[in-house]
Design a protein around this nucleic acid. Structure first.
Lengths: 246, 246
DNA sequence: TCGCTTTCTTGATCTCGATCAAAGAGACCC
DNA sequence: GGGTCTCTTTGATCGAGATCAAGAAAGCGA
């Protein structure tokens, strides 16, 4: 059982972009495991690292969801990755974060101090191969997303996102895929918009439209039921066989 | 010096999606190097592999440019990667192509037969680490492109593409970056549109607009001069320091 | 040189999603 | 309960880029 040797709590404001002024970014909790790794937990909405900041660790998600986002000077933002449990973040050999990493839900990460991790990698050939596998998967996902961002309509984008989330949820629960499927959206409308390259109003309207058309039903704002998965799939524009995400 | 032991000229049908109309796909030339690798050359426009086809090799670009594209059932296409000399394509451990790979210009590839290559990888730890590096670079590029596809305007997209191409061209020629910069576009308007998530008409209009505004001049359709690189950069929406592509 | 094809440009119009604006629905606190 | 958040929905309008439609320019083979 890990021993809590440190617990830090920070504070202040978080003005996006001009981060020099940001005094409280990471009121998180830190749990020391050994000389190489430690757990850190974040509440939903907290920032793990800012793009460009020094990042002296790599890590993987233990529980919860984190997002990678890029922001332009004028504030336009695009989510470029969603990190689920077991996903890896950080680049051995690079000292600065390339993206903003944010906790989308409550989040626990297992962090490895960079130097020891790099040493481990040099000693363990299998580790690089495993990371290569994972990175290639991420690259495939990123390219799938490029098709979505570049060519899909708003309705197709929303449907695709719902399909992906419900698929993942179903696989976690090991449920059969026929019959109604119910799950919670782990993202706000705004986060969905940032992921899909839309505005939050359009996201809201398209969700309402899918509801109106009987493709989904809502309980509250975040809980979604898909009565006919195939029907929703047909709205995504993807091959019916499921393609990459299948 | 490699010995030409085989020279094949291939052909047939291409039954992927609606490609049945395609009568001749890969009239390429093959140059055997050794039991593990060989060269193949393609003319501009030829297809290296179709998405979903069996792919019993991995390879890297020797000269020319290849593109990775994804196509939806109704024909919408999105380019998801541009392969420049030294770039790698194919995934060890996967037997089928995930994307259409097309020669954008005349192209020479160095192909490695998959099995021997996988054996080599198992024996050579450094190889996986090198591939990991390259894949992480591609992932960064893909994510940069996601921001472009999701959030940039048509003018910003075109400017970004021109900046990337001119940067690469300048670095190949080892020219100083101040002063006018001249280069040939290696892509048709349609290919640019597929890369940028636009239509070819919009690409054409935006290029005309940049010309009208004095940011570029054209000699013919493909040869572009950038009189003031910083001015063009300012149109991309990116940080002035160049960010990832710098 | 003359077609013929491919590539590119430009114009007119339309539409989907953005933008601007307001109000509803919860959650939380006092 | 009221007050004040944040998140979400919905309406009205606008505009960037798509679509439809001609042509122009360039390349190429006969």
């Amino acid at each position: 059982m890990p021993d809590i040797t440190t617990a830090i709590r920070g504070c202040g404001e978080c003005p996006i972009r001009h981060r020099a002024v940001c005094a409280r970014c990471e009121p998180d909790e830190l749990v020391e495991l050994d000389s190489m790794k430690y757990y850190r937990s974040f509440q939903a909405g907290q920032t793990v690292v800012w793009s460009g900041d020094k990042m002296d660790f790599v890590g993987s998600v233990v529980s919860g969801i984190a997002s990678l986002t890029q922001t332009m000077e004028d504030g336009r933002t695009q989510m470029v990755g969603l990190l689920l449990p077991s996903d890896f973040v950080g680049r051995p050999g690079r000292d600065f974060a390339a993206y903003d990493v944010t906790a989308t839900t409550d989040l626990v990460m297992c962090c490895f101090r960079k130097k020891p991790f790099e040493n481990l990698m040099a000693r363990t050939p299998h580790l690089a191969q495993r990371l290569l596998e994972m990175t290639l998967d991420e690259l495939d996902a990123a390219r799938e997303w490029m098709l979505l961002l570049g060519r899909k309509t708003a309705r197709e984008k929303i449907s695709s996102l719902l399909v992906i989330i419900s698929r993942r949820d179903a696989s976690l629960k090991l449920k059969e895929t026929d019959g109604p499927l119910t799950f919670d959206l782990p993202l706000t409308r705004e986060a969905m918009a940032d992921y899909l390259g839309l505005t939050l109003e359009t996201v809201s309207r398209q969700i309402s439209a899918l509801k109106r058309d009987g493709l989904i039903t809502l309980q509250g704002k975040r809980n979604i039921t898909v009565p006919d998965f195939q029907a929703l799939m047909a709205e995504t524009g993807d091959d019916s066989d499921g393609g990459f995400w299948g």
